[in-house]
Amino acid sequence: MLPPRRWRLAVEMTSAIAFDAVNLWFHAQDGSALQTLRDFNMQVGRGEFVALVGPTGCGKSTTLNLITGLLRPSSGSVRLFGETVTGIDPRVGFVFQADALFPWRNVIDNVVLGPMYRGAEKSAAYVQAQRWLEIVGLAKFARHYPHQLSGGMRKRVALAQTFINKPEILLMDEPFSALDVQTRGLMQDELLELWSSTGASVVFVTHDLEEAIALADRVYVLTAGPATVKSSYVIDLPRPRVTTEIRYDPRFIEISRQIWHDLRDEVQKSPVAMVAANV
């Protein structure tokens, strides 16, 4: 039996992000088409921290691009706060996997970009940027250029650059995957702290299952491409969490064992894994 219509509407109204039966094909020059998302359904509640895990190349980045409006679904709908995505939404913030800082601008000139683009007054924007640099602990490095910073510091700049726009929806595409293990742990804790004071809804893409569990309220496991949601798990670990310690929590270990069973099948199916196995 279907839930009553009114109730369904209410769920849609409250979710920050809703994927409804989304299919996506990429059309190549030679006329062939590649399906990347298949009947993809996902809901992200307001203030919820969701992690997407799945094998490399399954379609995780594509999912995020649908939320930013850089891509449109071939069929189905993607909605933010109930409205269909038609272009880049100013409520969305994005932290990229690769370094997307502007290399020709120093740290504070990078952080100030969002408010400047959005028409803020210059001196006010710089005051705001300075405050964000203090929050991420980089006030002393305002005049440094990105190439003069470590990988972790560059990520902090990227976080300040994104958070200064006060995004209601925060998308992160394997943001910490290039960092060493210690720095990654620190950045995860820093992210949770920043996030807890904003109430933003987060979609965090990663192929690191432990990272997903340590950070998220809910983990979606995607199938090998074309991606669809294979299963979703509620992570009932208490907050505030310290990601570097929570890994040793028995409940954490139990959850990760469960999810790993699911994920392993998909990773083995993915073409990348098959290539690796052939080598």
Partner: peptide
């Protein structure tokens, strides 16, 4: 010009002219 940085600027709120001024010209420099 780096597509990642262009996409980043768009999401940060840049108009096409702002992208030309702050991304395209510096990277073509």
């Amino acid at each position: 010009a780096d597509r990642n940085i262009v996409a980043h600027a768009q999401i940060l709120g840049a108009s096409p002219w702002q992208i030309t001024r702050t991304v395209i010209i510096p990277s073509a420099l």
